[in-house]
Design a protein around this nucleic acid. Structure first.
Lengths: 211, 211
DNA sequence: GGGCGTCCTTGATCTCGATCAAACCAGCCG
DNA sequence: CGGCTGGTTTGATCGAGATCAAGGACGCCC
């Protein structure tokens, strides 16, 4: 992807860091965060209103690239949802590299376009879908990014976030999320093992439920 | 912004077009649309669910740049909200120019980052705000992009979209939008002249109502 | 393995916004 | 000017999801 010169500079200046679930990664201040590649785990991006209402605005899975060039006007915060491994690059290094590397510019453009598509997709979910459609939508999203098949051919996912975060992602309350999960369970679409682990028995039914 | 070579090529291949309110600009198929600079007027970007539910995912004002590089997975449609003037560039020309021009790459990155910020901002509105906060939020958005001051120092805006579109942008029904507009009117925050024209008397009160 | 804290589920009730229905108004054209 | 039409306002009722309140399950640590 990048040329040898860029790779060398990246290798020189980047640092791998490891963070446990719940740790704040403080993206909003570019100074602290710079840029980071998620190399394993899942990161939650969120915004909060003055009175404390919270909205998750994105989930970043490996190998997504996080961070913003040339300052950001919207104060996002980032938190490790699961145990996370990052490959961090200081802001100045990244900006210098970006200015000198075409590849990197395109990679960054590509990532931001992908994030934009996801954000707009989610706007439809938040603006127009019912509670059960929203819950089906997250499950499908997570299954798409993290799901693996088991012996029966069912899709198994370890949810990176709990019910409260699902609620904040979906614009619902955690009680409503829980109720809709139960509903999908009673319908036989999914089953749940120990709160965090979801087995999807009928992926097409789940897709049908996403609206 | 761009060098003389790029400007010449742009001038050669770009075409100015004019569209009346309601006209479909069909962005979803890159072939047809290519890229376009909005030089005057306002464009609505929307997505619809299979059953017809619709969500506006963005408004593009002059001088925003519209369009996507290297294909898009999410089917957006674009429609002229008001009378619109575009400066269109065919997809292949734009892509070739982008590959050869650093300036243009950065301009494109900048636009997509701006769009991303707006989309995420709007996710908070859709996920966590009450009806009146949402209505106050659009009014503020439109006033910020299009508003002008009158003799009394009030801000006057000609709304680019009607109640139905506001509802689709806000994830509400048009009746609810109308009721909240009336509420802001009775509170003396705004007044309305002939459906489309809004006068904002107390911009701070309006900001306070955005949540 | 048992106890405890946290997260999740389920139930009862309330509320905001949706839905259904009817007037109302602005702009337009004859 | 007056009637028509499409968009808007307002009213009455309904319902999905929020809120309030227990109860239950998981998992962790001793």
């Amino acid at each position: 992807m990048l040329g040898p010169t860029e790779l060398r500079r990246l290798a020189t200046y980047s640092r791998r860091t490891r963070h446990c679930a719940g740790e704040t990664l403080a993206v909003e201040s570019d100074e602290v965060m710079g840029y980071a590649n998620v190399t394993s785990g899942t990161v939650k991006l969120s915004r909060v209103l003055r009175d404390g209402r919270q909205q998750l605005v994105g989930l970043q899975f490996a190998p997504d690239l996080m961070g913003r060039l040339f300052s950001t006007e919207s104060p996002l915060s980032a938190e490790a949802a699961t145990e996370v491994e990052l490959c961090r690059v200081p802001k100045e290094v990244m900006e210098a590299l970006v200015l000198s590397s075409d590849r990197l510019k395109l990679r960054l453009l590509d990532q931001s376009l992908k994030d934009l598509d996801e954000a707009r997709e989610w706007m439809v979910t938040l603006g127009r879908k019912s509670a059960i459609e929203r819950v089906a939508s997250v499950l499908l999203l997570v299954a798409t990014r993290m799901g693996g098949a088991d012996a029966q051919g069912d899709i198994v996912v370890e949810l990176p976030i709990g019910r409260a975060d699902m609620a904040d992602f979906l614009g619902l309350t955690l009680e409503t999320v829980s109720r809709q999960m139960s509903r999908l369970r009673h319908e036989g679409v999914i089953s749940v093992q120990g709160h965090r682990c979801v087995v999807i028995h009928d992926i097409d039914a789940l897709k049908g439920r996403t609206g």
